[in-house]
Design a protein around this nucleic acid. Structure first.
Ligand code: MN
Ligand code: MN
Ligand code: MN
Ligand code: MN
Lengths: 223, 223
DNA sequence: AATCAAAATTAGTCTTGCCTAAATATTGTA
DNA sequence: TACAATATTTAGGCAAGACTAATTTTGATT
């Protein structure tokens, strides 16, 4: 799996992985939004990736793309780099979880396999990054994710936060200020069916959270 | 000094700095060799850098280039990144001095000022990298270098090794195997004026070193 | 002063990855 | 079934940075 893959291609593959993780096809528009690029540029790149020597994506005009086995390996390699880097920035350099994303976004493309191995070992081969996201294993397998969105819980259900699917620093700081971070136990005490707000108890405090937040927090282990 | 400077430009500036550090002009050919690029490419890039909004280099056709004040700041920024990274790879991830150059060569262009500040602080603001090279200060001043090449010493002169000006991993491993690393005390016991070999004593052992080695080891403080 | 080799520059191409504008395909709905 | 809105693709361009081949400049040597 050694890389002749450009930075740009690595980012395409990573985002295609994320958009197709649950069996969907990634649309040109969704990719354009994720990559901050115009749809026409996505079409161009996708056509190139699809016609590469060993194709990195499977593509049919107007239908969207998925990754080939080769493309998936390359994507998982980048994702592993990203998540190990985030973990390591937090644990060894004192970054906070709202600061790491941007730094990792650049570093992920330039570290060697040697570097990856050394930080993984130094961290004790972690399985989750600071946001609770699962880290692909060294052999590029993505562990199964058992969690469900907090939004799907209803009053009297308790659970523990597994991961927070967000990179926006403001949102992350806000969540931290409420104590909504991975590992924390929470309980839903109220649900408003019109706006889908949930009232969530953390320790002694309760907060009312809208769907745009509860859909980004993933929990497990409701009692 | 924030960067709109591409990776490629950063490498040009860094190498121009190194080639002009002692007052010379950097020639097109020397730069081409240093950057592993054809001379025609160097001419093209130099002309662009010379005609940039605030010019990064001063250039006259066929005469060679030097850095402007702006260009020098940008170069020192990259060099500071490189040398802090090398130091940090050795001290916190257990890299050896022959392994760090290549990794730092890529990382130097993508770390943030925040990252630079954090590793500098974590390392206690070091002034030399693992090869003994001086690290530009945070305000981008290069400390004065008092050292002279080992090649200039003669029998009965003693000195301590300050820095080793080499990146070739094989050479670095060889020097380490001889105990020729920064901080080590040495003494010259013989000189051969025909081939310029020096016999150098380190601890109990002596080795005969050719000019291609003694010109890359810099020493200070002969007693 | 004339000559010549080495060094440097110019001219013209190529690749990568993006863009805008225009054309076309798909889809959901009337 | 047909139309309009939406999504996607095509066509044509541009900027960076590299390359090769051809040409010019420099500066040493006769
Ligand atoms: Mn990235
Ligand atoms: Mn993360
Ligand atoms: Mn570099
Ligand atoms: Mn060094």
């Amino acid at each position: 799996m050694s890389e002749l893959l450009t930075r740009s291609i690595q980012d395409y593959l990573k985002h295609i992985y994320e958009l197709t993780e649950h069996g969907q096809l990634a649309s040109t528009n969704d990719l354009a939004r994720a990559l901050q690029v115009k749809p026409a540029s996505v079409t161009g790149m996708i056509q190139k990736l699809a016609s590469d020597k060993p194709a990195l994506v499977a593509y049919q005009k107007h239908q969207g793309v998925t990754l080939t086995a080769t493309g998936k390996m390359a994507a998982l390699e980048v994702i592993r780099h990203h998540r190990l880097l985030e973990t390591w920035l937090v644990q060894t350099l004192g970054y906070t979880w709202d600061e790491v994303h941007e730094e990792a976004e650049r570093l992920e493309h330039v570290i060697s396999e040697e570097f990856e191995a050394r930080i993984a070992a130094a961290l004790g081969n972690p399985t989750r990054d600071p946001h609770g996201e699962l880290i692909p294993s060294e052999d590029l397998t993505m562990p199964a994710d058992e969690s469900t969105p907090l939004a799907s819980l209803r009053p009297n259900q308790a659970a523990s936060i597994q991961r927070v699917d967000a990179q926006d620093p403001d949102l992350l700081r806000y969540l931290e200020s409420l104590g909504l971070t991975p590992g924390v136990e929470i309980e839903v005490t109220a649900y408003s069916e019109f706006d889908h707000n949930l009232t969530v108890k953390v320790g002694r405090k309760s907060n009312v959270l809208g769907l745009s937040i509860t859909s980004k927090i993933f929990v497990e282990n409701g009692k």
